[in-house]
Simulated assay, not measured.
Amino acid sequence: MDNKDMDNKHVFTAWDDTHSSLWGNQPIRLDHRLHQSALFSRDQLARLIETYPREHYSLVHTGARESRRLWREGEIGNLSGNQVIDAISRGRLWLNLRNVTGVDTRYRDVVDQMFEEIAAKVPGFTAPTHEAGILISSPDAQVYYHADMPGQGLIQIAGRKRVYLYPASAPFITPQQLEDIALFDVEVDMPYADWYDRHAIVFDLEPGQMLNWPLNAPHRVENLSTVNISMTVSYVNQDIRRAQMVHLANGLLRHRFGYQPKSRAIKGASFWSKAVLQKLLRNSAWVKKERSARRPIDFKLDAHQPGHILDLAA
């Protein structure tokens, strides 16, 4: 099935009233048909990788299960799309093709349709701004404990993964951590303790399934012995966007000016002053320097040994 076939079929296959009530309030698992689309075939993904803009992808090397803090970012180099997929199949690697909906209109059409279906089923739901990315990841690769700023969903296309979802409240996540994510654009630096897992809801995600969870809920992911293809979707409405602006402004006040902000209001005079502050400084040299220092590109894929990486000179 290609994206044209989707025109006459719903993305979701078994949505009921409980899903409408739970959406955004509790973690839920939904059934979809995107895994049947030719857009996610190996040939299509290989061609997509070969033409993907450098500024829109991240290639990450992670540690083994017992290692929680290895997180290096690298380059594809001159490998073909099929060589990249072969390398991912043999190493602990994640390739994130960010904003695929902005790069390729075929994926935009599918995701637009998906959000139209959600809006029709969830009273009051709006997502005027939304996008998606494609994740291709190794057997046994992991994504460490982290949280995201926009609303989030995870769509499984191929392979299996285990997703741990945690409460969106202290001690699992704090306002200061949200401020750091907004300011430094690095999600995986959050502190984590093994006992958090006793409070997690755990899902084993199969092809044809999607997860959605409450805004800013921390989560971590473990692949289960197979190459995984997934699509992440993110969405922003006015309240989410305003909260992001406040988190960024509060982070600037703490880290740049040494002031401890007290308000997280998304309305009123306090909000508008912070909206101006973050607009003036979000693209400043200081912010760019802090972000680049936290996300260095320090390896490339080895073209001669699939799954191996080569260190880049500092």
Rank of each mutant, 00 (worst) to 15 (best):
W195Y: 14
Y196C: 03
Y196A: 04
D197C: 01
D197P: 08
D197Y: 11
D197T: 14
R198E: 15
R198G: 14
R198N: 15
R198P: 08
H199P: 01
H199I: 00
H199A: 12
H199G: 09
A200Q: 08
I201L: 14
I201S: 15
I201D: 15
V202N: 06
V202E: 11
V202S: 07
V202M: 12
V202I: 15
F203Y: 08
F203S: 01
F203M: 03
F203E: 00
D204W: 03
D204M: 09
D204G: 11
L205F: 04
L205N: 04
L205T: 10
L205Y: 05
L205C: 05
L205E: 01
L205G: 03
L205D: 05
E206Q: 15
E206L: 13
E206A: 13
E206D: 14
E206W: 11
E206N: 13
E206V: 04
P207H: 12
P207Y: 13
P207G: 11
P207A: 13
G208P: 11
G208Q: 13
G208C: 13
Q209G: 09
Q209L: 02
Q209F: 06
Q209W: 01
Q209V: 02
Q209R: 07
Q209K: 10
M210A: 15
M210Y: 03
M210F: 01
L211A: 12
L211H: 04
L211E: 05
L211W: 00
L211C: 10
L211K: 06
N212A: 04
N212M: 05
N212H: 09
N212R: 03
W213N: 02
W213D: 04
W213T: 06
W213R: 09
W213S: 02
P214V: 07
P214K: 07
P214Q: 06
L215S: 07
L215Q: 09
L215V: 05
N216E: 08
N216M: 08
N216P: 03
N216Q: 14
N216I: 00
A217R: 07
A217S: 15
A217T: 05
A217G: 07
P218I: 08
P218R: 06
P218H: 08
P218Y: 04
P218A: 02
P218E: 03
P218C: 06
H219W: 10
H219R: 10
H219K: 10
R220S: 04
R220G: 03
R220H: 10
R220W: 04
V221Q: 01
V221T: 07
V221R: 03
E222S: 00
E222P: 00
E222G: 03
N223D: 09
N223F: 06
N223P: 04
N223Q: 12
N223M: 05
N223A: 12
N223T: 08
L224D: 02
L224F: 02
L224W: 03
S225D: 14
S225C: 10
S225R: 12
T226D: 10
T226M: 07
T226P: 00
T226F: 01
T226A: 11
V227D: 05
V227N: 01
V227Y: 02
N228D: 02
N228S: 14
N228M: 00
N228W: 00
I229P: 05
I229L: 15
I229Q: 03
S230Y: 00
S230L: 05
S230D: 01
S230W: 00
S230P: 02
M231T: 03
M231Q: 11
M231N: 06
M231K: 10
